[in-house]
Simulated scan of single mutants.
Amino acid sequence: MNNRIGRSWKAAGRLWCALFILFLAAGTRSAAQVLPAPRLLSPPDSSINQPTSLTFAWRAVLGATSYELQISDTPLFTTLVYHDSLIFGQSTDVSGLHRSTTYYWRVRAQNIVDQSAWSDTWIVTTLPAPPPSPVPSSPPDGATVPTSVTLAWGASSGATSYRVQLSASPVFSTLVVDDSTVTATSRPVQGLANNFDYYWRVNASNAGGTSAWSASMGFTTTAAPPPAPTLTSPPNGAADQPLTVTLSWSSIPGAPSYRLQVSAGPGFATLVLDDSTLTATSRAVGPLANGAIYYWRVSAKNAGGRGAWSSAWYFATVAGTPAPPVLSSPLNGTANQPATLTLAW
């Protein structure tokens, strides 16, 4: 009898223990079912130009023992590029993401009994790939250009800015121009030295990095325009010059041609002669008018352009031979004239 009573008490005890365990389990499951979804921290939602190695972080959830992270390149998470279902902590490092790609990520909390709902989905876009090297276009390699020139190149795909370097050294040891603020595909350069060799190159940049330098291009600037010639003959202010006169001036080294202007006025508003084809240092001018004043000047030209005018000189031509008088009195052939006559013309 006592044994039966004892066994009954033992059975009742086991029953109560089982009920207690079930109660605890039910309470634990109830707690798990109300795990809130985690709140995402970083990288920020809709962030751009992020590196391809990132730390994804979220706030801790009370009661959670681990977290699950999903990363996808589709907003519905139909394909996963990263999935970790057992993260012990509130962040994890992810590497190997692709450049210029938009990713979607979410997290949920979990414990031994249940999981929370997914967090909000945040978006992150990685850095673009660096742009390719630009291709220089103008001036072409080996060109001869003026001392003011525009450097130009083809657009580099994805580039947001360019850096232009100009140097007198083919290895760019010293720089005449080093401009990294260019956003167009050309850069004007002024004030270069005459008759000088220059080298230039360009690279392209965006948020993802900087390209390699383009091929180096070289050009030579033109020679400086020649100085003004010195007038030599006839002397300034010369008088009684013939109606065809030879004008002469000094030779300018390196100047293959000259321009001569002759005018009847000191301002050269109207021209008697304007000859820019001269290769010698003299020119015969005529026929000119008798008793007139003429002004003349000369400039020289080379590959660098036309130089300044010389000072203006003037000369006067010889006066004209007067016409013969016309006799008027006494009339030709008249007779019986007095011994004292007045001759008139």
Rank of each mutant, 00 (worst) to 15 (best):
T65A: 15
P136V: 00
A60Y: 11
A215R: 14
G6F: 14
D240I: 01
T277H: 09
A184M: 01
V177N: 01
V171F: 15
S311L: 09
F315M: 07
L331V: 15
S138M: 11
P130M: 07
Q110M: 14
T65M: 10
F88P: 00
V326T: 13
D197A: 14
S299L: 03
P256N: 05
Q241E: 10
G286P: 13
L288Y: 07
C17Y: 14
G158A: 09
T244C: 07
V94A: 08
P131W: 10
Y198R: 08
P226S: 08
S42P: 10
T244R: 07
P44M: 01
L24N: 12
Y162G: 08
P130T: 09
P131Q: 10
I293Q: 13
T126H: 11
D73C: 09
L271N: 01
T181Q: 07
M1R: 12
S328C: 11
L175Q: 12
W249G: 04
L243I: 08
Q190N: 15
P36Y: 07
L41W: 03
L288K: 11
L80Y: 08
Q110W: 05
R99C: 14
T147H: 03
I48Q: 14
L97E: 14
T92K: 02
R29P: 08
W58Y: 00
D45T: 02
Q50I: 04
L22V: 14
N290I: 07
P134M: 02
V298W: 08
S233Y: 00
N2I: 13
N203I: 07
P324R: 02
P330I: 07
A64D: 02
W105E: 11
P234R: 03
S248H: 04
S216K: 00
T246E: 09
V272Q: 08
T232G: 10
Y314G: 00
A26C: 04
W213P: 09
F219T: 10
D275E: 01
A269C: 06
S251W: 13
S205Y: 09
S100N: 14
T232C: 11
V171Q: 15
T125S: 12
P170C: 07
P188T: 06
S100A: 13
P36E: 02
D275L: 03
V318P: 07
P322Y: 02
S161G: 13
Q337P: 13
A339I: 10
V177S: 06
T340L: 03
A224Q: 11
L243D: 11
S47E: 12
P128I: 07
T317Q: 04
I5F: 12
W58Q: 04
P227R: 05
A152N: 04
S42R: 06
L271M: 00
T78S: 12
S30R: 13
W16T: 12
P146M: 09
P325Q: 11
N3Y: 12
A215C: 04
A344R: 10
G154F: 08
P256M: 04
A292Q: 04
W118P: 02
K301D: 06
A292D: 05
Q261C: 02
L62H: 13
L40C: 02
T78L: 05
V285Q: 07
P134Q: 03
T55W: 00
Q337R: 13
Q70W: 01
Q33D: 14
W58P: 08
E68Y: 00
G267L: 15
